[in-house]
Amino acid sequence: MTTLKNSKGFWLSIVLALIFFGIMQFSISSGMLNPFYINTLMFIGINIMLATSLHLIIGITGQFSIGHAGFLAVGAYASAVMTMKLELPFIIAILAGGIIAAAAGMVIGIPSLRLKGDYLAIATLGFGEIVRIVLLNIEYVGGASGMQVSHLTTWPWVFACVMITVIVIRNFTNSTHGRACISVREDETAADAMGINTTYYKVAAFVIGAFFAGVAGSLYAHNFYIIQPSNFGFLKSFDILIFVVLGGLGSLSGSVLAAILLTIVTTFLQDYPETRMIIYSLVLILMMIFRPQGLMGTREISTLFTHKKTKGGKKDGSHNTVA
């Protein structure tokens, strides 16, 4: 019953997304949308992919990873090598970016078997920095001065990749595998005791998350004319982290929403980077004070419409840490 309702909402949102795609495509091809807005649109798409892929790792599986720009960088450079050096088609480059980033995800997923909390955060931060520094020192990809990339990223590519990312992550989450990941987030000891191979699911989350960050990297690289290691520093990881935290840890639609809102804010404050930092910090502080669970908490947009406003169970909800 509930699954039927959910899948109705699912198809409805797909139809709405396709209509949106059509309108945008028409506006772009007819020249109604100026390049500034087109570029914003691309960034929104890429950031949605980054936000939702990190959401899978942090929000669903509870692995506090703060080196997501590392996967973005791997995808960006891998795909740029495919198109620029090996002269392969863009679709191959996109896939290669995803797959190579996924391999990196497996590598960084392995230490997460042993590390928890702060230690994992530091390890992933280190990973992001290592990727950046390695790229900085490879002459083949241009070192610090960066690598020339052709502009191949178009709205249909971005739209298709965003849709695939969101649908795959949604489908994974709403299945026994997603529940296994959430059980790891909720209580790893209990998950283990219930027969969940916690290591496997942690690595799976890293691999899937890294794959889509890598795909986003391919689109990101080919949306510029040049990529440089400095595009992928810690601040980039931090931006992605903010999407997830602001959207509400554990909410896919929250991540999407936050990615859209913050990308728009950032774009319009592009010329005032200091103002942007101040606004960002203010938003975060206000958020922590008034809504520490994020925009959406752990809820999804779909449940906002179906849920009745009867919340009476609070009385007995507070003794879960007795004994």
Partner: peptide, 26 residues
């Protein structure tokens, strides 16, 4: 061999039925 814990360790953000489904996962 399966167990319960002295300090309850449920998956507190998951629904009641999802808690059971996690155990049935394997």
């Amino acid at each position: 061999i399966s167990r319960t814990f002295q300090n309850i360790r449920l998956f507190s953000e998951l629904s009641v039925i999802d808690n059971v489904k996690v155990a049935y996962h394997s």
